Amino acid sequence: MFMQSKSDKWFNFFNVLFILLGLIIIIYPLYYVVIASFSDPASLQNLVFWPEKISLVGYKTIFESKSLWTGYQNSLIYAAAGTSINLLLTIPAAYALSRKDLQGRSILMIVITFTMFFSGGLIPTYLTVKSLGMLDSVWAMIIPNAVGAWNLIIARTFFQSTIPDDLLEAAKMDGCTDITFFWKIVLPLSQALIAIMVLFYGVAHWNSYFNALVYLRDQKLYPLQLVLRSILIENQVQSDMMLDTSSMGDKIRAGELIKYGMIIVAALPMLVLYPFLQKYFVKGVMIGSIKG
């Protein structure tokens, strides 16, 4: 059995100590939000480690609010439809750019990379969206971000490092066309990449609120993040959520509970999805580090 020296033992001790300290620094704010979502706000003035004066008023109000659930539904639609369009455009484009026989691919990559550093700005983008008739519509939340340059580069690098040219040549010898090769060979071998793109694009759509702030006026189209933003910044609750309160103090306490509860409700889908895609997320980071 390998015997550790005294210096190694001290190193391991402080290493574990720093890791535990970092874990506490990360975990406690998340834990605090959870217990604050059903604790009396008056009991949260000091450092707390367990719920005090448990109240479910915040969650009850959230589950009964039509506007919040409408925002929740809109965010799910934007995330699902947006991610589907993202995949439909990004994966084929990245594969095409990974092929050495694509003429002008170097120029295309320069143009795509250029967009990562320079853009037209908010006003030209707004005028473009307006001229296309997408203002105050679902498409304003989906089309402007249909393809992410960085995700496109990650996908292209994946294809370059994973799909060898010999595989394509062997498939063509058997009479396989480019489209058949892509659908029946490339896509089945790219499940990890697809999972990565779902995670990247899905999280971006779910957390997006700026496009809604700029392009949407109809509150029925607001995503959950915009509704949550209104509650957090304005520090007030819509009148239809205050029907069960009888005093200003009750309203303030209910508002605090609702704000913390909304953070939990808004983050829940990503918290459920992330454990299933975590290993692909790590692999995606490694893919992005490969040059090619």
Rank of each mutant, 00 (worst) to 15 (best):
F158W: 06
T70K: 13
M286E: 14
V272K: 03
L97M: 13
F182S: 05
T115C: 05
Y126R: 13
R99Q: 15
M286D: 10
M141W: 07
M134T: 02
I290Q: 11
A96Y: 00
E52W: 03
W139G: 01
T90P: 11
S7V: 03
G120T: 03
S5F: 05
M1W: 11
Y222R: 06
G284E: 05
K6I: 13
S119N: 12
F210V: 13
T115P: 01
K172T: 13
I264Y: 09
L44T: 06
N15R: 12
S230F: 04
T90G: 14
I264Q: 02
T70I: 09
M134D: 08
S43H: 07
L135V: 09
L89V: 12
L30G: 15
W206P: 03
Q191V: 11
G288I: 02
K220S: 15
S247A: 10
Y32A: 14
A204D: 14
F13P: 13
C176D: 08
I153W: 00
S43C: 02
G202A: 04
A79C: 14
F182N: 01
K172Y: 13
L152M: 09
M241P: 01
S239H: 06
E64S: 14
G120V: 06
K291N: 14
V227A: 14
M173T: 11
R156T: 14
